[in-house]
């Protein structure tokens, strides 16, 4: 799948905002990922052409930020906070439980493409630990059963 005209126009508009066009690489990656779901090696190649840099320069940035994905993702991003306060409240056991129930490990996607599971660093909800987020929605004060109810309700 290649970059649409819309995305290309968007990138051109972003580029105009920066003294060097390479400065627009981050907004460009957001635009590309919003459309394509992840930044594949092929997408990196297309972006590299647009920015007149090398594909490796694009993938370096993709790999640096954890909000960019270099492989196809599930329809829902489920991130379990495993930072210290959540861990003290059982987040790691929760994570292992979710992994066992979904049959995948953190960083992987279920075979049906429904859920991509991941670790998350602190999301500022320590008072309601342990917690996870589904996309932009927080779910707090969890145990495994509550969490699985939420996950089972995802399309």
């Amino acid at each position: 799948m290649s970059l649409s005209e819309q995305v290309r126009d968007g990138i051109a508009r972003e580029m105009a905002k920066y003294p060097k066009k390479r400065g627009a690489l981050l907004p460009a990656l957001h635009l590309a990922q919003a459309e394509l779901g992840h930044i594949s090696v092929e997408t990196a190649k297309e972006l590299a052409e647009v920015f007149e840099i090398r594909p490796i320069d694009v993938m370096e940035v993709v790999s640096f930020y954890n909000m960019f994905y270099d492989r196809p993702q599930g329809r829902h991003h489920v991130y379990v906070c495993t930072n210290l306060p959540c861990s003290l409240r059982g987040a790691r056991t929760l994570m292992r439980g979710i992994e066992a129930r979904l049959g995948i490990e953190a960083g992987e996607t279920t075979a049906d493409g429904r859920i991509t599971l991941g670790h998350e660093e602190c999301l500022g909800a320590c008072a309601y630990a342990p917690m996870l987020r589904v996309g932009g929605t927080y779910h707090e004060d969890l145990d495994l059963e509550k969490a699985m109810q939420i996950l089972d309700g995802l399309e």
């Binding site: 090696v41 090398r54 594909p55 490796i56 320069d57 993938m59 370096e60 790999s63 640096f64």
Partner: peptide
Amino acid sequence: TSELAVFARGDRSTIDVHPGV
């Protein structure tokens, strides 16, 4: 020629080449 780069960050950083290059 830029064949090498640092991928990921922090304690996960590694030196690597781009797939296929």
